[in-house]
């Protein structure tokens, strides 16, 4: 369980460019959930997840992960970091090794795993993000942007974290690659029972794979609920500069036109089932 109590974060405290990025966030996230995090640009999403990953210390407030308070005296931050994997926004710049294989292995080898274990994990992670085996021997610097992104994501997945946080992992990837990666992550979530936090601007992606959603607005948590409940509030979302999935919009319009569809439809499958049910009547 991840528990945030009155968490705030201010960049450059005391300076002329002081900026409160996150204010008074109280949030409890359950283990095993697939949580979507959305909010307008600059709403503090990246800041919030960096605090959860223990990379930056809240200016005030506390964060508890499975009963341990981050940055407290009796908390081994390194151990916690091995349990949490964070794929930062635009993670391509973190590549540095001679070969892709070695770069993906950086995380696992920091965990001091035996060699064969590392090898297994690297191959597993590379396969997960759709990297062909021959790429593993190339230098990460001669890859395309999308391939670099995949290597960076694989580098975190190879650590097999219990809490996986992804900050817009698919921004800038082609649609097929995006769906593939998200699908594999969903699959990993189901099989290993890990907790996933996914930051995304794509309502479709969030609707398809998350079961809970947190909405941030100007550094505060505006909503936190089941995915189906969140997308019922299309008006509120629009006020925050966000949207609902296109299929939800269409269903709303159909309902306004007199079709007796139920509320809170957010995937194409749900819409299909619902419309068929209505038409049969």
């Amino acid at each position: 369980m991840i528990k945030l109590t009155d968490v705030s974060y201010t960049y450059m405290t005391g300076g002329p460019f002081e900026k409160a990025a996150v204010s008074d966030v109280n949030l409890t996230l359950n283990n095993g959930d697939f949580i979507g995090l959305m909010g307008h640009t600059g709403s503090g999403k990246s800041t919030l997840i960096q605090m959860i990953a223990g990379l930056i210390k809240p200016t005030s407030g506390t964060i508890e992960i499975d009963g341990q308070t981050l940055h407290s005296k009796d908390c081994n931050m390194r151990k916690i970091r091995f349990k949490t994997g964070l794929v930062m926004q635009y993670p391509e710049y973190q590549l540095f090794e001679e070969t892709v294989f070695k770069d993906i292995a950086f995380g696992p080898s920091n965990m001091q795993l035996p060699d064969e274990d590392i090898k297994r994990r690297v191959e597993f992670a590379a396969d997960l993000v759709g990297l062909a085996p021959e790429i593993l021997e190339k230098s990460p610097f001669e890859l395309s942007g999308g391939q670099k992104r995949r290597v960076a994501i694989a580098g975190v997945l190879a650590m097999e974290p219990q809490l996986l946080i992804l900050d817009e992992p698919t921004a800038g990837l082609d649609p097929a690659g995006r769906d593939e990666i998200l699908c594999k992550i969903k699959d990993m979530h189901r099989r290993l029972g890990i907790t996933v936090i996914l930051v995304s601007h794509s309502m479709e992606d969030l609707a398809n794979i998350t079961n809970r959603i947190v909405v941030m607005n100007h550094g505060r948590v505006a909503m936190h609920d089941k995915t189906s409940e969140i997308f019922k509030k299309s008006e509120e979302l629009q006020k925050m500069g966000l949207a609902v999935p296109q299929i939800t919009e269409i269903c709303e319009k159909l309902r306004a036109a007199g079709l007796p569809l139920s509320e809170g439809i957010y995937t194409v499958e749900m819409a299909k089932a619902e419309i068929e049910k209505v038409l049969k009547k």
Binding site: R81, Y93, Q94, F106, M111, V156, M159
Partner: peptide, 27 residues
């Protein structure tokens, strides 16, 4: 940003002797 990303991957900049610490700067 890079320090954060490598810390998230378990890089350790604080412990170890001088040579290990210098090596930790490579990433």
């Amino acid at each position: 940003k890079i320090i954060k990303a490598q810390t998230a991957r378990g890089a350790d900049f604080e412990s170890g002797n001088l040579i290990n610490r210098a090596k930790a700067m490579i990433p």
